[in-house]
Design a protein around this nucleic acid. Structure first.
Length: 544
RNA sequence: GCGCCCUUAGCUCAGUUGGAUAGAGCAACUGCCUUCUAAGCAGUGGGUCGGAGGUUCGAAUCCUCCAGGGCGUACCA
């Protein structure tokens, strides 16, 4: 039992004695030390119920509360009626001990043990290299997967793509024109074709392989297929550099091949939600409370994205996942309400589908805003970014902010002043610890030796221990809210507390007992930093 | 017009789901290396939490309205 569950239990007992139900017990860490380790607002919540002053109720709760030498040593009432609980210290050192015992496992939980999750992200069509815009979604997606795994989910990382349709025809045609250019023909390259240098590279590769054999080839299939292959290879390499791999690449085409698209249309039609108008097939969203109907199949016979997306989500639900997450950029915000409405109209449970929207990355370079567009080629690729600042900085930048906020990515700063990046601050704490542990071994001290943890009583030591013990709750909160930046902030604070401890408390000294206790403390700190960075996909270097 | 997101220190952002005196990093200024890594620590200055109402013991946080910004609002994805 932890101190928190003990307090909850005691408060619950109080409520039962008073015959009060329907009140949720909330415990939180007070901001200030003088307010103890845990605080409850129960008395204030009950004030209206019992028609008594909060402080009076608080006194009553205090009188009924059983102190326990292993958990709560003292209770105080403060402010408008807060009840502050002070840890006895025993549980604190116990938790520290358990960090040392659990090691790499510390922070993991079985909250969602036995449950499965499918996370769809990146999902860029193979028309060009991944950009910084894709990078945010990629890093967020992978990190959310890592967090879900840490709380027990079995996770499938999935990339959904479409290699048919207009975009891909334009891609093939773009490559063909560049190829003809290499053959010395003067060509007129349209503005709305893919302008990037990578198109020329693909054309060059085709030229080197085929010479001028395709001079009169008007069918773009070969060019399109070559381009898709080259681009996908490139995308997969970029993903690998970022430190993960997808379990499934799901081709939209298979939805057609397996008849899933027709099934959706037929099922919606059965429910009276489909109509033919002006040569197109419409999904009657207006019947479901939306403002306007949506086209599912254009008059040209080509479906709009909504139709396959609907079929895909039905497919995902049928695969039986407990949790289905879509990670989209803000530009896709309009797509999901209709899609979810269709899935719901078909009788499926959409509550297990969670759509996460990440806001745009605004890229600035030299004070100029750079608009990222694959088509126009004035983008900075993820690979270029990683070349400049490395994987750790790249991941950290994408994770440090709430995904609801626009991310301002100052490329100039990231490139030239990367030394000032906060990621190094955290990594530095880890490297410092490794260095001290190394020195201890050199001096013949075994850092793993049994230590008297209760001798750690300095303020800096206590603050550090307290923060360490909040790691599991942080991981859980970060995971269930799909908010990696919470863990980032936690680690930054942890690094701060460690650096403060370091400047005030000497670890290796003449005091043998104290040295051993402090070595144990920094080992626990190293474990939490390493585990945390690992969840973010960021390395924890031994030396810097 | 409508929908989603955002507005907190000069800049970039946190703020534990409604709690106690609103925090951090940059930037500016001042100190601290003979001792385990100075990529560090300590300190100073900096705020009408966009604005106005409301909900209640209590609001940066929830509701309504208004103002600014971003993204959508296609028979593009």
């Amino acid at each position: 039992m932890t101190i928190k569950t003990y307090i909850e239990q005691e408060l619950q007992r109080y409520l039962k004695e008073k015959n009060i139900s329907d009140i949720q017990i909330v415990l939180q860490h007070p901001k200030e030390e003088k307010f103890g380790d845990w605080a409850s607002n129960l008395a204030m919540q009950l004030a209206r119920h019992l028609k008594k002053a909060p402080r009076e109720i608080a006194e009553d709760i205090k009188a009924h509360f059983k102190l326990h030498p292993d958990f709560v040593s003292k209770i105080e009432i403060a402010g408008p009626g807060f009840i502050n609980f002070f840890s006895s210290g025993v549980s604190l050192y116990g938790e520290l001990q358990s960090i040392l015992e659990k090691g790499q496992e510390y922070g993991k939980s079985d909250l969602a043990a036995g449950r499965t999750a499918q996370v769809e992200f990146v999902s860029a069509n193979p028309t060009g290299p991944l950009t910084i815009g894709h990078g945010r979604g990629a890093v967020l997606g992978d990190t959310i997967c890592r967090l879900l795994e840490a709380v027990g989910y079995q996770v499938t990382r999935e990339y959904y793509f479409n290699n048919a349709g207009r975009q891909m025809r334009v891609l093939g045609e773009s490559v063909r024109l560049r190829y003809l250019e290499l053959l010395g023909q003067s060509i007129d390259f349209p503005d709305d074709y893919y302008q990037g240098e990578y198109i020329r590279e693909i054309a060059r590769a085709i030229f080197e392989e085929k010479g001028d054999a395709l001079r009169d080839e008007s069918d773009i299939t070969y060019f399109k297929d070559k381009a898709e292959e080259a681009i996908f290879t490139d995308i997969k390499n970029t993903i690998r550099r970022l430190g993960f791999a997808f379990d499934v690449f799901y081709n939209e085409k298979s939805l057609y091949d397996e008849g899933k698209i027709d099934e959706v249309i037929a099922a919606l039609r059965e429910r009276g939600l489909i109509a033919e108008r002006e040569g197109a097939v419409w999904f009657l969203t207006s019947k479901l409370g939306f403002e306007q109907d949506r086209v599912f199949i254009k008059s040209t016979g080509e479906p709009t994205y909504r139709l396959p997306d609907t079929a895909y989500h039905v497919e995902k639900i049928k695969r039986g996942y407990d949790l289905i997450i879509d990670i989209f950029g803000a530009d896709h915000i309009a797509t999901y309400p209709d899609v979810l409405a269709a899935v719901k109209a078909l009788g499926y449970d959409v509550s297990r589908i969670k759509v996460l929207i990440n806001q745009f990355v605004t890229l600035t370079e030299g004070g100029e805003k750079v608009k990222m567009s694959t088509r126009k080629a004035n983008f900075v690729t993820l690979d270029e970014l990683m070349d400049e600042v490395g994987v750790d900085v790249t991941r950290y930048f994408f994770l440090m902010r709430n995904m609801n906020s626009h991310l301002n990515f100052d490329l100039t700063l990231a490139k030239t002043q990367s030394d000032e990046n906060p990621v190094y601050y955290i990594q530095y704490a880890h490297a410092r610890i490794c260095s001290i542990l190394e020195l201890a071994r050199e001096r013949g001290i075994d850092p793993d030796a049994e230590a008297q943890l209760s001798s750690l009583t300095a303020g800096e030591e206590i603050n550090l221990i307290k923060h360490l013990t909040r790691f599991p709750a942080t991981v859980e909160g970060s995971a269930v809210n799909y908010e990696p930046h919470r863990l980032v902030n936690y680690l930054f604070e942890l690094a701060t507390l460690f650096h403060k401890f370091y400047t005030v408390c000497r670890v290796i000294s003449d005091n043998k007992q104290q040295s051993l206790a402090r070595l144990a403390l920094i080992r626990a700190t190293r474990t939490v930093i390493a585990n945390g960075l690992n969840l973010l996909g960021i390395s924890a270097p031994q030396h810097m």
